[in-house]
Simulated scan of single mutants.
Amino acid sequence: MLTVPATGSTNADLLVLADDRVVDEGTWLRAEQQTAGRGRQGRVWDSPAGNLYASTLVALRPGDPPAAGLALVAAVALEEAVRGALPDPSALRLKWPNDLLLAGAKLSGILLERRAAHVVVGIGVNVAHHPALADRATTSLRAAGVTVDAVTLLEDLADRFASWLDMWRAQGIAPVAAQWNARAHPVGTALKVRLPDQTALEGQFLGLDASGALLLGLADGTRHVIHAGDVFVV
């Protein structure tokens, strides 16, 4: 595990290190602060000291399942690690495509970036602080009364990620998706989805398809497959 006091983005740094063949699969890079942290769709990820900002590298191999499934691998590993730190994890839920919610508020996010045969998985967790966002509620582990620190959380996360990565390679996406569904909001939950072209859809959560895409049941009885978008629990 590599740690730096500050950097622009752990994802960006790890991509450069992978390009230069300086690091191998399984390397984790953690920053105590980021000055140019990124979320999905180019959003800024507020990165004050005290939270977890870390990225790891996956080197894709011939015969690996489709790389898109790594988002689910990261999500179930993160959920397990955070669950282990909570005295009462009953309010913890995964939300497609990359959020972990605690009592309905955003606790963390995941950003995957691919370059050739390398996928960098970036994970941010609100450990000590949480930002105020206009479009969604946020929270932190400290706000929930949890005293775990970012280093301890990452050590557990790294072990769990390695285990789920091995399972993904050995058994495919099915067991990973099954775990994700077990930790997500229930089938039938009302969702609103904003697609990349800003089209809005409302419907019911129907689970995931075989690739890990979101299945949304619309009011007219049709089923819409969502590969990208922002999802809000209604």
Rank of each mutant, 00 (worst) to 15 (best):
L2R: 15
L2V: 10
T7V: 14
S9Q: 11
L14A: 09
V16Y: 02
D19N: 10
D20E: 15
R21I: 07
E25A: 15
G26S: 05
T27S: 09
W28Y: 14
R30G: 09
R30L: 14
E32L: 15
Q33G: 09
Q33E: 15
A36F: 09
G37P: 01
R43V: 00
R43I: 01
R43S: 00
V44Q: 14
W45V: 06
W45P: 03
W45T: 00
D46K: 09
P48Q: 01
P48I: 00
A49G: 12
A49L: 10
L57K: 08
R61K: 14
P62W: 12
P65R: 08
P65N: 11
P66H: 09
P66C: 12
A68R: 12
G69D: 11
A71Y: 03
A74C: 12
V76E: 12
V76Y: 13
V82N: 13
R83V: 10
R83K: 11
R83F: 11
G84T: 07
G84S: 08
P87R: 10
P87L: 10
D88V: 06
P89F: 08
S90P: 08
L92S: 09
L94M: 10
K95I: 03
K95L: 08
D99K: 02
L100N: 07
L102D: 13
G104K: 05
K106M: 00
S108H: 11
G109S: 03
I110G: 02
L111V: 13
L111H: 14
R114Q: 15
R114L: 05
R114V: 05
R115M: 01
R115K: 06
A117I: 11
A117L: 13
H118R: 14
V120A: 04
V121N: 02
G122H: 03
I123R: 03
G124S: 05
D135G: 00
A137C: 01
T139E: 01
T139A: 01
T139W: 04
R142K: 11
A143Q: 15
A143I: 00
G145T: 05
V146K: 02
A150R: 13
V151Q: 14
D156R: 15
A162T: 13
A162C: 02
M167P: 07
A170C: 14
Q171R: 15
G172Q: 06
I173F: 13
I173R: 06
A174L: 11
P175S: 04
V176C: 08
A178F: 11
W180I: 05
A182I: 09
R183Q: 14
A184T: 06
H185G: 10
H185P: 10
G188H: 14
A190L: 12
L191C: 05
K192L: 02
Q198Y: 12
T199R: 15
A200I: 13
L201S: 04
G207E: 03
G207A: 03
D209M: 02
S211I: 07
S211K: 10
A213T: 00
L215G: 00
L216P: 04
L216V: 04
L216Y: 07
G217T: 05
G217N: 04
L218A: 06
A219V: 09
G221Q: 05
R223L: 03
H224R: 15
H224M: 12
V225L: 07
V225Y: 02
I226G: 05
G229Q: 08
D230Y: 01
V231A: 03
V231G: 01
F232T: 06
V233P: 00
V233G: 05
